[in-house]
Design a protein around this nucleic acid. Structure first.
Lengths: 204, 204, 204, 204
DNA sequence: ACTTAATCGAGACGGTACGTCTCGTCTTTGT
DNA sequence: ACAAAGACGAGACGTACCGTCTCGATTAAGT
C-alpha cells in the first residue's frame, strides 16, 4: 500500500503470470449492479453474479473476499455529479436540487442501496461511508454553496448551520421514504417540509 | 375480520381438532425475539428458532409462512409505553423524551429492527407499518401533547405543524444513526439539532 | 376372534362408551387392501389408508399397532379356495392346479404380497406364516391329494415325498417370477420345469 | 462404454472441472453396504449414509439420483468368486457348492439384499438383474461345469437340463429360507431336497 | 522457442439451512 | 368411551448456495 520507495515502483512492475482479465472485471461489476437493482442485496447470490457475468465463482472470489466487498465496489462505480444551481433565489435553488434528489431516491437501485446500507450499518460501516462520500457529500456541498449565497443575499440568518440544515433535509427524505407519514405524494410532502425548515431559518 | 354482528359470533365456536399450543406460540415468539437481538434478521434461521423454542420446524411453519411473518409478529409483541412528560417547559419536556428515545435506538435490537424494516421496506411494507404503529406512534403523540402545551404557553408559534416537527426529529435521529455526520457524540448532536429546530419554531 | 363358546360370554357385557364402528373396520381393511395392490406395501402409508377409508388416523392406530398388523389382517381376509382336480391323470391334474396358480401369482397384489413377505421375513415372520397358511397350505394339500392318487395308479414311485415335490414346484415358481431365467413365457417355463420334476419321479 | 473407435477415444479425455473424489466414492459405497446389512434397505437413510461416510448429502445426490441407484451400485461391488470343485463325484461336488451357498445366504446382508430385490422386482428390475449377474451367474456356471463332468462319468443322464437343475436348487433354497417348510435345520433340508432332485436325474 | 506462474472455465467438496413430508402420538370437541 | 379432526415432536427428504478446492487449458512476461 504505502510504497515510499518510488524508484522501484516507477514503472508498475507487472507481476508474473497471466494478468487479470479486465473483461471479467467489468462483467462482474455490471452483473452485480444489475442484480442488486433487480433482486436486492440479500437475495443477490454470488452464484447468480457469476452466471450472469459468464464467469466462474473463483474468479469472483479472487477479486472480492465477500459479497459486501463486491457490492461496495459495484456501487462505487455509480458516479454522482451534482450541478450547483444559481437562480438568485434560495427557494428555487433548493427546488432544483430537491427535484433531482427526489427522482433519484425513488429508483429501485437507490432503494436497494439504502436498504443495504442500513442493513449492514452496524456490521459493515463501509457501505454507509461509501454512500456518504459518493452520494451525500456532493449534495451537502451543493447545499452549502446555495445557503452561503442566500446568507450573502440576507435571505437566511448568517448563523444557520449549513450541515445541520442539510442533515435535516436528507433525514426527512429518508424517513418519509420508509414510513410514508402522510397521504400526500412524496414530492409534495418533502417540499412542504423544506418550506417549514426554511421558515425557521428565515430572517425576520 | 372485525364482524360487528355480535349475535352470530357471540360464542366463538372452537374449530375441531387439537387447538394450537399457546405454550408453543410463546416459545416461538420468545426465541425469535432473542435471536433477532443476538444475531440479527438475516442470520436468524428458522431452524435455530425451532431449536431454542424446543419446538419442531413444522410447528413454526404451521403458524408462519415465512421468516418475515414470524419476525413481524415477534416485534409486534415488543410493546412500547411512552410516558408524556410535563415539566412546564418545552425544552425540558423534549429533553426527557429524547433521552429515552436515544437510549432505545442505540440497542442492538433496535438497530436490527431498523435494518430489517428498511431492508424490506419495498418488498414487505408490513414491517415499516408495524414499526410506525408500535414505536413511532406513541412518540408522535407524546410530542404532539408537549407541543400543544408549549403553544398554550406561547413558547412556540400556534401554526407549527406538530407532525412535521416530529418527523424532522425522528428523521434526523435515523439519519445520524446511519451516517454519523459529525465527530461529536450521538446524543450531543441530536440535542443540538433539536435546538436548531426549536429556534426556527420559536415565537419572536 | 372365536366367540362360539356361549357359556363364557353369556351376558356379553357391553363395554362402556361408544362402541367401535364396524363401518370403520371394513372401510379400513378395504382401503388397505386396495392400496396394497395399487402402490405396494412400502409406499402404502397409514395416512393414505385413513384418507381413503374416510377415517382418522387414531381410529386406525386404535385397532392396529403397526402397518404390519393392519396388512396382516387385510391379506388374511383374502380367502383362498382351491378345488382339487381329479381327471384320472397326474399330468392333467397338475396342469389344472398350475393354471390357477400361475394366473394368481402374476397379479400385482400377489407380487406385492410376496415382496412384503420376503422384505419382512426376518423382522416380521408372521407374514410368511400367514401366506404359508392361507395360500400355500391349500395348494400343498391339493398337490398331496393328486400325488397320492397318482401313486395309487402307479404313475409315480410310492416313496416320492409329496411335500418336497410341492416345495420344488412352489420354489421354482417364486424363483422364475423374480429372476426370469429364460426368454420363454413364464407359463411355458413352469410347465417345462414341472415335467422335468415329474420325469425324475416317474416309475420306470 | 462401446469404444470400438480406438483411434479417437484412445486417451480418454478428462471432463473439465474438479474430478470426483474416489475417496468419497468408496466411502459412500462402503457406508451404504454396511448400513444395508445393519438396518435394511427401507430403514437406510441417505442422511445416515452421508454421516457414516463422512460426506455431505449433496455429494451423494451428485452421484446417485435415488436410494435405489446407490444400493444397486453398492451391492454390485460385492464380488462373488466361486471356486468350481472337482472331486470326481457329483454328490461331493454339489455338497461343496451347497456348503458355501448355504452359509452365504444366511447372512443378514444376503437376507436384506434378497428382500430388497423382491420388494422392488416389479418397479426396479435392475436389482434382480444385478443379483442374477453377480450372485447367481457364477454359481450357475459352476453347477453347469460339475454336471457336465457328471454326464461324462455317466452319473446323470446326458439329456438333463443344467440350467433347469440349477433353477430348482436355487429356487428351493430361496423358498425354504422364506417359509421354513420343515422343522429340520435349513442345511439338512436343502441337502435332502437336492438328493431328491439327483435321484430323479440319475441314470438307472 | 521455452519456461514460469498466475489466470481462466468448470465443477466437486463439506457445510448449513431451506421448506415439505410422513410418521405415530396427543389433545381437544362432539356423539 | 369412542370418533373426527388436527396439532404435536421427530426426523428424513431433496434443493440451493455458501466459500474452498482441484483440475486442465490459457495467456503473457521473462528467459
Amino acid at each position: 500500500m504505502l510504497s515510499g520507495v518510488s524508484a522501484e515502483n516507477e514503472q508498475t512492475k507487472n507481476p508474473p503470470g497471466r494478468p487479470r482479465s479486465s473483461r471479467a472485471d467489468q462483467a462482474i461489476l455490471g452483473a452485480a449492479a444489475e442484480l442488486l437493482a433487480e433482486v436486492g442485496y440479500q437475495a443477490m447470490s454470488i452464484e447468480a453474479v457469476a452466471l450472469r457475468a459468464g464467469v466462474s465463482k473463483p474468479t469472483i472470489y479472487r477479486r472480492y473476499a465477500s459479497k459486501e466487498e463486491l457490492v461496495a465496489d459495484a456501487i462505487e462505480t455509480l458516479r454522482q455529479e451534482v450541478a450547483i444551481p444559481d437562480t438568485g433565489s434560495l427557494q428555487t435553488d433548493i427546488d432544483s436540487l430537491l427535484a433531482e434528489a427526489i427522482q433519484m431516491v425513488q429508483t429501485p437501485l437507490a432503494r436497494q442501496t439504502m436498504a443495504m446500507i442500513i442493513s449492514s450499518a452496524t456490521s459493515s460501516p463501509q457501505f454507509a461511508r461509501i454512500y456518504a462520500t459518493k452520494y451525500l457529500m456532493p449534495r451537502r456541498e451543493a447545499f452549502g454553496a446555495i445557503l452561503e449565497r442566500a446568507k450573502a443575499r440576507n435571505e437566511i440568518r448568517a448563523a444557520t448551520d449549513n450541515d445541520l440544515f442539510f442533515d435535516f433535509v436528507s433525514g426527512i427524505m429518508f424517513h418519509a421514504l420508509i414510513f410514508e407519514p402522510t397521504a400526500e405524494p412524496y414530492e409534495a410532502y418533502i417540499r412542504r417540509a423544506v418550506r417549514f425548515l426554511l421558515g425557521g431559518a428565515a430572517v425576520r
